[in-house]
């Protein structure tokens, strides 16, 4: 409800954001699209020309591609599940009356301030390193051989690192949502004879749906592009065991120096991301209307 002049003003005011974002999206995307149909290798700069879909078919035929897809999915889903489940449990715990809640919260949100290269460094060297890492020492204390985390369980290790980084975010959002639940509702449920478990299932959990939606939306946006942790910790290895789609594209561009293929991979990634985005936005967009 407004007048024509305010509607006009509103269009003018929203325009800069839309225009800059559109350019930021479309120019690199158009260039990537162009490169993806060309031969463009930094190691043999003389060979140029159109190659049709050859760069794309190379991707689809590469076994690494399918591994990368499943690794990407494993990373996103793994981190989402861990952070939502653990986040809920931790939020339930902190929501109880405890001593030093303020300091507690400071400790819990700390990982959020740790930049990805540092997070990877801590885990890769200080914890998961077989000789010098703390976890290796723990294994030896129990008389076991140290586990070669990055070699034997590279994806699980990466998921652990990323989940640690994102756990504070999920916890905080869920905690805030829980604190907004009126205690009268819980007391009413208690009067009605609901057990603690049932109170969680029928009162607390439904109340958290919206918060969980936000966690999933925001985390997915960031998780689809996870790069720094893999780059620092495993370099996508051993072999391709921890190569995700972004990392595979990176390898094509920087290691193999094949810009055409990297571009094709980029376009595939963009299409896949948009499919995810579409479904996510559709299901979540509704949930966000308040």
């Amino acid at each position: 409800m407004s007048t024509q002049s305010t509607r006009l003003a509103s269009r003018i005011m929203v325009a800069p954001s839309v225009i800059v974002l559109f350019i930021w999206m479309i120019v690199p995307l158009a260039m990537t699209l162009y490169f993806s149909f060309r031969i463009y290798r930094l190691l043999s700069p003389d060979r140029t020309g159109w190659v049709g879909f050859a760069n794309y078919t190379w991707f689809f035929k590469s076994p690494e591609f399918w591994l990368a897809i499943s690794n990407t999915l494993a990373l996103v889903l793994g981190v989402l599940i861990i952070t939502v489940v653990l986040g809920t449990l931790i939020a339930l715990l902190i929501d109880q009356p405890v001593k030093g809640q303020g300091v507690l919260r400071i400790l819990v949100i700390a990982p959020f301030f740790v930049m990805p290269p540092v997070a990877a460094m801590i885990w890769d060297n200080l914890f998961m390193h077989p000789q010098n890492g703390l976890l290796g020492a723990v294994s030896r204390a129990f008389g076991a051989e140290p586990i070669l985390y990055m070699e034997q369980y590279p994806m699980a290790s990466i998921i652990t690192i990323v989940a640690w980084e994102w756990l504070p975010f999920a916890t905080l959002i869920l905690l805030t949502a829980m604190q907004s639940l009126s205690s009268e509702q819980l007391e009413a449920a208690e009067m009605d004879g609901a057990s603690a478990l049932n109170r969680f299932r029928y009162i607390i959990f439904p109340h958290l749906t919206r918060a969980i939606t936000v966690v999933i939306l925001i985390e997915t946006i960031f998780l689809l592009g996870i790069f720094g942790e893999i780059f620092t910790a495993t370099q996508g290895g051993p072999g391709s065991a921890s190569t995700t789609l972004p990392y595979m594209i990176f390898k094509q561009a920087i290691v193999a120096k094949d810009i055409g293929r990297a571009a094709a991979g980029g376009i595939i990634a963009v299409i896949l991301a948009n499919i995810v985005a579409f479904f996510l936005m559709r299901s979540i967009g509704k949930n966000l209307d308040a």
């Binding site: 839309v18 946006i221 790069f227 980029g266």
Partner: peptide, 27 residues
């Protein structure tokens, strides 16, 4: 001054963040 397409616009803006950065690294 919300319009019919405000929600879509917002969602579109967020979706630009879903584009993996690596995909457009070279450009």
């Amino acid at each position: 001054v919300p319009g019919k397409r405000t929600k879509d616009l917002l969602m579109w803006m967020l979706s630009t963040k879903m584009m993996p950065a690596v995909a457009v690294l070279i450009p």
